[in-house]
Amino acid sequence: MSDPHEGHHETHAAPFPHGTKQDYVTGFILAAVLTAIPFFLVMSGIFSSERLTAFLVLICAVAQIIVHMVYFLHMSPKAEGGWTLISLVFTIIVLVIAVVGTVWVMYHMDANMMPGMMTEPPAN
């Protein structure tokens, strides 16, 4: 065990995955392009179809998240014997269940409980 107040330099203190300068620069350029595209699409309104614009913006966001994961967070299937990837996949599953489930349930609640349908139950 090394004393944390020891003044010596110890490289490889913990097995954190490293990136090279090339990684960071590549990641930055990709991220900048993937940020600029959706902002341009929305601000210029180049496509008249809202659905198409939303779809392309979504694709850019997913691509940019992957770029950040790989080039900035140094994710790889081999890091930590695969445990970081497994915990990420688990989180994504929980996330999708929570978000999609919420939107789904609340949409139906909304559609089936409009003010017009709130009638008094018949008095017997």
Binding site: S2, A13, L88
Partner: peptide, 21 residues
Amino acid sequence: EGHSTPLGFWIYLMSDCLIFA
């Protein structure tokens, strides 16, 4: 010392991710 910190901190980030979810 600290050999499990990367995975532990990653799991913290994943739990933070669920707050944002």
